[in-house]
Design a protein around this nucleic acid. Sequence first.
DNA 1: CCTTAATGATTACGCCTGTAATCGTGACGG
DNA 2: CCGTCACGATTACAGGCGTAATCATTAAGG
Lengths: 131, 131
Amino acid sequence: MVVSPSDDSPGERITEAEHAVMEVLWERPRLTAAEVCEALCAVRGWSLPTVKTLLARLVSKGALAAEPDGRRYLYTPLIARAAYVEGESRRLLDRLFGGRAASLVAHLAESEALSAEDLAEIEALLKELRP
Amino acid sequence: MVVSPSDDSPGERITEAEHAVMEVLWERPRLTAAEVCEALCAVRGWSLPTVKTLLARLVSKGALAAEPDGRRYLYTPLIARAAYVEGESRRLLDRLFGGRAASLVAHLAESEALSAEDLAEIEALLKELRP
DNA sequence: CCTTAATGATTACGCCTGTAATCGTGACGG
DNA sequence: CCGTCACGATTACAGGCGTAATCATTAAGG
């Protein structure tokens, strides 16, 4: 199979089902399809073919590398989890909060999504960030 | 807060195109399809029929009310923006940060998504939240 | 050798989404 | 009255997504 010619920067968007697969491989790279299935099929109620389809789509999107290992492949993320998380976070921020992170935090606080513990943790974080 | 017997509060998921329509109506409720189009079609490159389809889908999802006004309808949100934002935020939080808001803030900070200004604003926010 | 089991590739398929054209009908100007 | 126009309703349709069955190949075991 050939790798897409030029496209490799953002790649195409990763869907939610695909994301579940990525999480497994971010945790433990270089797994076979069967191993990914072991980690996911029970939880998500998927069958092995489903996992294989998702792996194939992720490879074709440039999100995974498939390294031949005998007659099967070992799959490994090509994009960092941090980059993905960053992208998704920014999308949410832009779409719902006009890109203003402070608005997000304010909303979380108001909607009680933030426990006292969370608040303390964030406070500590900020202290670290601005000495 | 527990929801009643059969699920109806989350309704079906609102897509991104639909969300754009919701934003317009959250800002100014009781608009006609043509008025929503005025606010959106140029920006998004949509045609009036497209807007009408989205409006119809949102009505059938229970996200909008269509109030008859002569031979047309005035559309009004049935779900609060805050509820939608809350849902989306929580989904992101759960999916990417194990539900830990502090992790989100930490990530934003590390990835430089937070400007010094943002940080100051959040700090001020926290001060208000914990007197 | 020949069968079998594992594995990737190919194909399938129904639903959702984005985007729209077409249809039927009632209102309004002439 | 009659033609045209403005609406909503209905229908369309391609592409993406979730989920999977089937096909082809090959390694391995008897």
